[in-house]
Amino acid sequence: MTTPTTDTTAAPAPARRSWLRDHSELGVCVLLLALGVLVLTDALTMDVDIAQRGPVGPKTVPVVVGAGLLVVAALLAVDVLRGGRGQAESGEDVDLSEPADWRTVLLLTGVFLGAAVLIEPLGFPVAGALLFWGAAYALGSRSFHRDPLIAAVLSLVTYAVFNNLLGVPLPGGPLMGVL
């Protein structure tokens, strides 16, 4: 298995950093490798009981998938070291000429997790509104009159449509208890 970092330890620090940035895709190989090890470990430590029916047990496919992950991790590492690069996906609103804006991604992740935590205590209408407002704020919307209003209306309407019209239950929370 290729270990991506060891062969660069001799290089001076700045050069090494730029090498790592150019070859950041090796991180994907490491993740695939880790996933493969995880799947294989899980499969091999499985104590298959007598319940097995047929010649192929519950272990076989995980072993194949795990081994496949290891092989693909190695092949991908070879490809990256030879200069192969995965093409970042383009899209209508995607501008690849700018460097990635990690702050926005982190903010969005945080907002999403926050909403997930709040959905049971506060109910969907409040948590959903916070999610929408927070996400819009993270994405650069700064209209402090319009944003909360849109968020509240969207969340309430969605709650009413799903809960009352479509028969998909969502938690109302204390707010719906009051109304």
Partner: peptide
């Protein structure tokens, strides 16, 4: 998330 990281100004 991907678009958020590269949103066109």
């Amino acid at each position: 998330l991907w678009v958020a990281a590269h949103l066109r100004r």
